[in-house]
């Protein structure tokens, strides 16, 4: 590690206080070892928010809203 960079904390140490862990040898897709439960929750929460944004754009690409505008416009005229 170069000058000006000092280790301030370890993600690993924040996640586990115990000194041993059990892993399945044939499972390479381990639970991310470098994230605290709190960081993991924040990551997943933000990811779901972004999924929601993508779904909003997907749904509004269907032109149902032109019909809604027409209905609203018609009712406003009455």
């Amino acid at each position: 590690m170069g000058a000006g960079l000092t280790p301030c904390f370890s993600y690993l140490d924040r996640r586990t206080s115990d000194k041993v862990m059990t892993v399945r040898e044939d499972n390479l897709m381990r639970i991310p070892e470098h994230q605290t439960p709190e960081l993991r929750r924040r990551n997943v929460r933000l990811a779901w928010g972004l999924v929601g944004l993508a779904l909003f754009f997907l749904v509004t690409s269907f032109p149902f809203w032109t019909g809604i505008f027409r209905i609203v416009g018609t009712q406003a005229m009455q």
Binding site: L12, V20, T22, V23, R24, E25, D26
Partner: peptide
């Protein structure tokens, strides 16, 4: 499927 116990550093 086998499991193994690793020390913190090994894991």
């Amino acid at each position: 499927m086998s499991t193994t116990t690793l020390t913190h550093d090994e894991a």
